[in-house]
């Protein structure tokens, strides 16, 4: 367990932003997924684009360590107003630096990054 979790991580873990999923069949929703039960962690990211093609809203669901949940929560805030194209090269590793994850938890931002890029992939 991350007893040394910092305030930002605890904030996102205790009060996750964008937790859950959009209603099934909601228009303009794209989904990306990474990790698996076998790997010990998994995450789904949903992106909802507005009329201007930019991200209007985002949701996540995650099963994994607190770092995984915090990274995914962070991403759902960060993506708002961005274009899909820009998210295809998003570096969640850098975005997650303020969470100060220990080295053994750095798989978390990479996994969230994979899910995000997959959600933003070209159709």
């Amino acid at each position: 367990m991350m007893l040394d979790a910092n305030a930002l991580l605890l904030d996102h873990f205790d009060r996750p932003r964008g937790g859950g999923a959009f209603p099934a069949g909601a228009p303009g929703v794209r989904r990306g997924e990474a990790g698996s039960e076998r790997h010990g962690a998994m995450v789904r990211i949903e992106l909802k684009t507005g009329a201007d093609g930019r991200i209007e809203d985002s949701r996540f669901s995650a099963w994994g360590c607190a770092g995984t949940l915090a990274c995914a929560s962070l991403v759902t805030e960060w993506v708002r107003g961005r274009t899909l194209e820009s998210l295809r090269t998003a570096e969640v590793r850098k975005l997650a630096e303020p969470l100060a994850l220990p080295p053994e938890r750095l798989y978390a931002p990479l996994m969230v990054e994979d899910a995000l890029r997959q959600a933003a992939r070209e159709d």
Partner: peptide, 11 residues
């Protein structure tokens, strides 16, 4: 539920 997250939620 992941045990690690559950432990932190129950800190």
């Amino acid at each position: 539920v992941h045990g690690d997250a559950l432990l932190l939620a129950l800190r």
